[in-house]
Simulated scan of single mutants.
Amino acid sequence: MKLDPQTALAGKSLLLLDFDGPVCSVFAGYPAPQIAAELVVELRTFAPQLADTLGSERDPMEVLRAAAGSLSRAEVERVDEQLTQAELAAVESAEPTAGMADLIATARRVGLAVAVVSNNSAGPIAKYLKRHGLDGDIGAVIGRPFGRPERMKPDPYLLHEALSAIKVGASDAVFIGDSLTDVEAGTSAGVMTVGFANKPGKALRLREAGAEVVVDSF
């Protein structure tokens, strides 16, 4: 089902967007499993026991979470810095999600503010938005706090930060995300959440997680 902007945005004053998925495919040209493997290689230089447990991990965010659960703050920041540098490289070849630029333009035209809330780092997000001419339409970019992966979604922290930055109440916002952690974070924050089923089999899982609306295109 294609998103109907009139229905999704009606009565709202803020559109919140996850980055990887709804806005673009961040790792289209620099695959996430490759980045995860590179993080594990780096971990072997100072945390070999942890690295041994992550040899098959394909999600770089999960590598970062694992580091936070076992290592010192300085070591977690070391992993986060490497991931941020990888994200900066990845956005060079990220593929825009069809229809999202038009949705952002529509939201702005009818008076909504737009913010990005993402487990990706804010710097790479800002780089992508500028590269694609979207930075002027985005009122806030809330990325993962450096060295604090416990504040990534599904924790609602990022959404609360965006609501505070734009000075909008949760009931006046709508959030579009493509993962179960997005839906959990949106629900916890009290924000209407739209699930983006951009891969086969996702729609049912997003509905079961609590997404109020599920779409497969914009």
Rank of each mutant, 00 (worst) to 15 (best):
D52N: 11
M1C: 09
L129H: 04
T193M: 15
F146A: 10
E87C: 02
A66E: 01
F146C: 04
V214Q: 01
P33I: 15
F196G: 02
G169N: 06
A162N: 03
V168I: 06
F175H: 04
A67Q: 00
A89P: 00
E212T: 08
L206D: 03
A126V: 08
A189W: 07
G69R: 03
S56D: 13
G136P: 03
L180H: 03
T53Q: 14
A113H: 14
V168F: 01
M100S: 04
G210P: 01
L50T: 01
A89W: 05
G29Y: 10
V183K: 03
K153H: 06
K167M: 08
D137P: 02
D182Y: 07
P145N: 10
S25H: 12
Y30E: 13
D80H: 15
A32I: 08
E77D: 02
D18L: 11
A113M: 11
R131C: 07
R148N: 11
A162D: 02
F196A: 07
G139H: 08
V194L: 14
A170R: 09
K130C: 13
V215A: 00
G190H: 05
V26L: 15
V41T: 05
D182H: 07
A170H: 09
E95G: 02
G111S: 12
A113E: 10
A32M: 12
Y128N: 03
P5K: 00
A185Q: 06
P96Y: 15
V40W: 08
Q6E: 15
T7P: 01
L43S: 05
S188H: 02
G177R: 09
M1P: 03
S164K: 12
M61C: 00
V79S: 04
G201T: 07
L43Y: 07
G123D: 12
A36P: 08
